[in-house]
């Protein structure tokens, strides 16, 4: 039983991390209908920027949480600037182009960001200094750390904040109008370009938070980390229903749980024939199954669009 509880905790934490990244994906998608494939790389830049600042301050005697916060303060503007630039340079000129064109520029942006990061931060894996309390608490035989609790709370809090922003503010209304019909929104006095830029900037700020959380939790950062994280988050966003904020959260947590429980029990279920190396197969299988029966994700709206 304690093992099962532990696996649930593992899945929740992992899922919250996916959700943090997926929120950024889904936000951009909700407004623009565009998969920002470079989002994972923005997370990576956020992680490495925060890590650099934290490393500088690690010996200063400031309390750990303060240092982490300063690191975040540094990473957020950097990521915002990058998000803004990506949109302006790689996506905006292609808004009327065929749908797959921005996909290619997104891949180009990913490659460029990765290689730039490699030049700036080198080829090495960086360790995140142990500034946050890492000792584990034990409940009913299952363990967790403070940071893990924070991650789950931050993910939930950010989703709630975004929902409020989108549903309860003027800016949110403008965003929804832009998502619905950009031309009409423009006529109603919404500065569409401005709104889209802002969406990217907010999404990138989320990426910075996610980057810090991921690198602090696993105490590792590397210029290549964005790719796999972005892929998982994208999967999570689609699972929930891409474009839907609650869906991203749900999809993320669900994917985390599926992976955890899959790795933990797939061997027992199949009598040892399939082991934890089929964890991703299991995750994709569930995804495919969900999409076959609910083609727009768990809570996504029905969409009619084509590739």
């Amino acid at each position: 039983m304690d093992i099962f509880l532990q696996q649930i905790i593992n899945g929740l934490v992992l899922g919250s991390i996916y959700a943090l990244v997926a929120l950024g994906y889904t936000m951009v998608y909700g407004i623009l209908g565009l998969i920002n494939f470079a989002h994972g790389e923005v997370v990576m830049i956020g992680a490495l920027t925060a890590l650099t600042v934290v490393k500088l301050l690690a010996g200063s005697g400031l309390p750990g949480p303060v240092i982490a916060l300063v690191g975040l303060m540094a990473a957020v503007p950097v990521c915002m600037a990058i998000g803004y630039t990506i949109e302006k340079v790689a996506y905006r000129p292609l808004r009327k182009a065929p749908r797959l064109a921005p996909l290619i520029t997104a891949i180009g942006v990913s490659i460029v960001l990765q290689n730039l990061a490699m030049m700036v931060w080198g080829r090495s894996y960086h360790a995140f200094p142990a500034i946050l309390p890492a000792e584990a608490h034990e409940v009913l035989g299952a363990t967790f750390t403070d940071l893990q609790v924070i991650i789950v709370l931050v993910a939930a809090g950010m989703m709630a904040g975004l929902l409020l922003l989108i549903n309860r503010t003027r800016l949110g209304r403008a965003m929804r109008a832009t998502a619905e019909n950009p031309a009409m929104a423009q006529l109603m006095g919404v500065n569409v370009n401005h709104i889209i830029s802002l969406t990217f900037v907010i999404g990138s700020a989320l990426a910075a938070v996610a980057g810090l959380m991921v690198s602090a939790n696993y105490s590792i950062a590397h210029y290549y980390m964005g790719f796999i994280l972005g892929l998982k988050a994208f999967t999570a966003a689609v699972l929930g229903g891409i474009g839907n904020l609650a869906g991203a959260m749900l999809g993320g947590i669900l994917l985390g749980l599926i992976e955890s429980l899959g790795a933990g029990y797939i061997g027992d279920i199949t009598g040892g024939f399939l082991g934890s190396h089929y964890q991703d197969v299991f995750a994709f299988f569930v995804l495919i199954l969900v999409l076959v029966f609910r083609p727009s994700g768990l809570v996504g709206e029905k969409v009619a669009e084509r590739a």
């Binding site: 696996q7 899959g262 790795a263 933990g264 934890s276």
Partner: peptide, 8 residues
């Protein structure tokens, strides 16, 4: 993340 396999 290796928690799942380590838990097992």
């Amino acid at each position: 993340d290796f928690k799942a396999i380590l838990t097992k």
